[in-house]
Structures are given as C-alpha cells and as structure tokens.
Design a binder for these strands. Structure first.
Lengths: 230, 230
DNA sequence: TGGTAATTGCGAACAATGTTCGCAATGAAA
DNA sequence: TTTCATTGCGAACATTGTTCGCAATTACCA
C-alpha cells in the first residue's frame, strides 16, 4: 500500500481504453520537475509548483503519480537515460571508469541527483539498463554474482559522494567574496590547536590532478582491490 | 544568514549571564530527537513532536536551535560521540577498518544516520574528534594531505552506503510473510528476459561471508588501491 | 443510437509542517 | 531598585502533501 515505496511507479496499470484522453504525461511532469530542480534545487520540486509548470491543477498530478516520492523516482530514471551505454573500452575496469565519468557529468548537470542516488534505489527502465550495462562489463571476470552487484552499487555510491564533495567545495567560498560562516568556523577550529592532523591535512597542498583523474583513480583503486586491473 | 547551513549550530554565542536560566538544553533536545528517530524514523523528528517530548512549547525550541537542519546536526554529532577512539590496532589499514566497523554498529543502532551522513557534512566536536582520529591513523604514510581527507571521506561514505544496502535487504521481505510490491516488481523484471546479467547476478549464490568481513574487505580494498596494506 | 461505466481534471478542503512575532515573566548586573 | 537582555510560549502564517467528490469526457456495448 505505502505509495512512497520505491518501485511502485513502475507498476502502474497500462493506459486505460475508456475515459477522456490524458492531457498530460508522466514524461512531461518529470521533465518539468527536473527543470525546476536544476534551476532551484530539490526543495523547489513541490506538487503545486510542478503542476503550475505543466499548466494543471495540483490534484491532477495524482492521476499520474502516486506520491511525491514516486515523482522523484521518475526524475532519477529520466536522467539515468542520459547515459551512453555503447562500447566503452576494453578491460572491465576501463569500462566501469568510463561509466563513472559519465555519471559524474550527469550529476553535475543535475546537482540534486547525488543526494537522491545515495538515499533511495532507482529501479526504472533506464536505471536498470545502466545497471545491466555495468554488470555486463564485469562479465567474464571471476567475481561472484553477489560481489558484482556490490561492486556496481559501490561504484555509483563513490561517484555520487565524490561529486557531492566536489560541488560542496566549489560552493565553499560564497559567490560573493564574503567568506560565509562555514569558513569562519573552520579557521576557528584549526586555530584552536586541538586538531593537529586535521589542520595539517587542510593546510597541505591541494591535489594537483583534475577531478576526472581523481575520480578515475578512486574507481580504479576500488576495483583493483576487488581483483580487477586494466 | 541561511540558518540551515551546516556548521551554524557550532557558532552559537556563549551562554548569557543575564535573564532567566534556560529550562532545557541542546543535549536534552538532541537526545529526545534521537530517541524519536530511533523509534519511528527521521520523519518523526518534527519540531512539535520533539517539543512535546521535552515538555516545552514548539516555539521554545528555537531558543536552542536555529532551524530543524541544525537539530539534525546536533543529532549527528551526538551519535558521533559513540565512537571509541582509543588504541585501535597496528597498521593504518587495521585502524581504519576498526573505525569503519564501529561506524557500522553505530549506524545500525541509529538507522536514520546513513542518509544524513551521505547527505550533509558533520562538523561538530565529536565528528571532528572522529575525523582527527582517522587522520591520525594515516599519519606516517606517504599519502598527500588532500588524499588523506579524500580517503577518510570515502571511508564513511562507503560504510554508510554499505549499511544502507544491508538494512534495505533486511527489510526487503516484509515483516509479514507477504512479499511487498518490490518483490513482485523484481521478479517481473527478471522474468522479462531483458536483463540477463542482472538476472544472473541476482540468481547467483548470496555471499557467504558475514557483513563485518564484507565491509572489512571493502575498506581494505579501497585502502590497498590507495597504497596501504596491513 | 442511446446508455453504461470507467477515467480525467480539478476546486476545495484537511492535517501537518517549519518558522516568526510579540509579550509576559525572569533574574543578573548597575 | 531599576534596567534590560533573555527565556518560554500562545498564536499566527505560509507552505507542504494528499484526499474527496463532482462534472466532463469518451470508449464500448446493447
């Protein structure tokens, strides 16, 4: 019953044959929600605002979705369709790295995506296609089935967390030159002398490598530990 | 200004010297919020319910916290205090694995924690102590400062994601014997024949190793890729 | 052709949320 | 004793997700 469970969005009955033709569509609604989230963040995705965007009344949306959570599922799956799942490279590791890099740019296009991916499963058709493709990359390796699933899950988790850190430090310094309270707090913490290792780590030279190389190295590290090299 | 930013909770002015003595405390409020979340999930942590729990009016809480987001920060930092940061082992890797295993049991005690950790930074005193301890474990290695931070961040991200998967599959089959819609959907997907690799991975024998061994292996994998062995 | 029944769009309403405002009561400092 | 920052909080506001009931629509069937 609980309509906020993941998955319920993909179990809707086939389009009815009697009654008035639907004026809107799940695709249209999801697109509007995505546009809203891209521009103003996830919190801007309220039923009423989405409805205004598609030109309907708020209650009408519930003919297409069962709950707000279901709408978020639709959004996730829609952007999962932005993957290019064609040939990706030779070794399994190279293929998975390529997928992760694609994931990074999708997540940077849609900054609301990492928190969602880290928080709820995505099981729509596009997400399943991505998952299938990633598992295909692991075909032929001697990894056990359960480990493959684990590995792919960690792949997206690592990528999401990485992008989240990345965009967080992009925003660390406010867009105006004024340092926000976060910076004030951090320097107070580091000045206290109570956290020498933290202070040292923060004071050290920032990483030279670009973000793509960094993420690639992270993924390769993870995979090499699991027995995969390129 | 935005009072929902992380960190603002730790920049409050020192206790005033004039005026009536506070009847409540941030600790008391956080404890009540944690009890609520442990019992009924994060959504149960509403200002009004917490206030009822501590025996105050809803508006009174705003003398202690700036926003609901700040309350969540207090909760996160309070449970970060459950770490035992004493001697943990010899090699850096062994120490970090020990920390991750502690993290796992904390997260299992507080199922609302992983989504929060994956979503917002935690920078209170207890969280900083944990971070400092993890960085200390990496002292002496030839890892660059920025990489150390990255590594520790990934450590908690991996642990959180792992626990989230773990408790999700615990709950996969509903507590009653009736398979929920999720299961129906999954078998429909696998029966469709459109996802052979996915089906194979799911059909394969589940992992033999216990969750602690599994998480330990994940962490060791990650670290060994970064140049650390035990 | 006319009627039946399912389905759509949606105005109105409900319960719950986070948060702000203003005021009476408190109590340390002057 | 006066001052005044600070506390607790009732009341209110805006906004949220969601449900209900009804009129309009349209395919199917007698």
């Amino acid at each position: 019953m609980s309509a906020d469970d993941p998955i319920t969005a993909w179990l809707r009955p086939p389009p009815a044959s009697v009654g008035p033709k639907p004026e809107y569509s799940r695709e249209r609604i999801a697109a509007e929600a995505i546009a809203l989230a891209d521009a103003q963040g996830l919190d801007a995705v309220s039923i009423r605002r989405v409805a205004r965007g598609v030109g309907s009344g708020p209650a009408s949306l519930y003919r297409y979705i069962g709950s707000r959570g279901e709408l978020l599922e639709l959004m996730m799956d829609a952007v999962a369709g932005e993957y290019d799942l064609g040939p990706l490279g030779d070794s399994p590791a190279a293929q998975l790295v390529a997928l992760a890099l694609q994931g990074r740019s999708i997540m940077r296009r849609h900054r609301w995506l990492p928190p969602l991916l880290l928080t709820r499963p995505s099981m729509g058709p596009n997400s399943l296609a991505y998952l299938e493709r990633a598992l295909q990359a692991l075909d032929g390796t001697d990894m056990a089935g359960a480990d493959k699933l684990q590995t792919v899950a960690m792949l997206t988790a690592i990528t999401s967390a990485f992008v989240q850190n990345e965009t967080a430090s992009d925003t660390l310094m406010g867009q105006d030159g004024v340092p926000p309270e976060r910076v004030r707090y951090l320097s107070e913490v580091m000045g206290s002398g109570r956290y020498p290792f933290l202070t040292a780590a923060f004071t050290a030279a920032p990483n030279q490598a670009g973000p793509e190389e960094l993420l690639g190295a992270l993924i390769r590290n993870h995979l090499s530990g699991a027995g995969l090299r390129e």
